[in-house]
Amino acid sequence: MTTGAYLDFERPIIELEEKIAEMEAMAEERGIDVSAELSTLQAKLTRLKEDIFTNLSPIQRVQLARHPRRPYPLDFIERCFTDWVELHGDRAYADDHAMISGMARFDGQPVMVIGQQKGRGTKENLQRNFGMPHPEGYRKALRMMRLAEKFGHPVITLIDTPGAYPGIGAEERGQAEAIAYNLREMAALRVPTISVVTGEGASGGALGIGITDRILILENAFYSVISPEGCAAILWKDGEKRDIAARAMKITAGDLFELGVVDEIVVEPMGGAHTDYAAIARAVDDAVRRHLTEITAWDSDDRIKRRREKYRQMGAWQSEAGVHAARRGDSPAPTAS
């Protein structure tokens, strides 16, 4: 898969892959045996991938989360679910193409799947508004959650958005209200809910479909209060300082797990999710299955209580009663300022 764009730090891998492909083609054409050379190159490729992908900086992970070939919600829906029927519209204003939703089956069990969808290529991206929903997208999402709740089926959301759209129409139609309302209503849903951050988890636009019993995140996805560029522009007065901002805000899957915000990191194939859709879909499928089994066993009242308690614990503060650390397990508490 060498068509399409790739990132700067992927270049050595792409070049080596092309070299291997060339050698294979040549060997076949001339009928010569190059298996020894090939296995050397393959080993080199594996090492190279490991070198690059085990030392990713936060901003490199952000780039992977935004990779133009990154699997999007519809790619996961195709691979992890069956019997998909997409449902449209918020029954009030419009159908937001940046937010997809529909009925599906997971292991035969009826579920509602909702996600932000980016486009492939300019035309589709314009139609999908680059995965940035308007208020009608959030209202559509909530309508679908209610539909699932009515029939007692779980809700699975796939989060991948650069943010809720900042525009005139969005403000006129109540972007803030639409998100706020979703946060509150998701908290009270009686059915099991799981969110999976598959790519960009940018700010309130991501959270607007993200108040769930379990929050999973792909290894190279991120979740943040503001984009690294936005943070850099405000605090460093320079959008180019995004790598520093990305590091400072602790937005990687590992950081988020450590901060007690996400419940599980779904490991991506070496080279990133975009290099092997089937493998990442299997990993997501497996993680969702395990969590869904657990939370489905709880009764509804208990589930709502646990969900509330989960968010209740998030954050770090100190008082005369001591320090409430935003840390998982027994790792040392942050130093009080």
Partner: peptide, 25 residues
């Protein structure tokens, strides 16, 4: 939201709204 607290500040939106659901109930 307070950027200096990263995703923890974002999650306060979830925390407060979740409790408002309880208030509404």
């Amino acid at each position: 939201a307070r950027m200096q607290e990263g995703v923890l500040s974002l999650m306060q939106m979830g925390k407060t709204s979740t409790l408002l659901a309880e208030l509404a109930t």
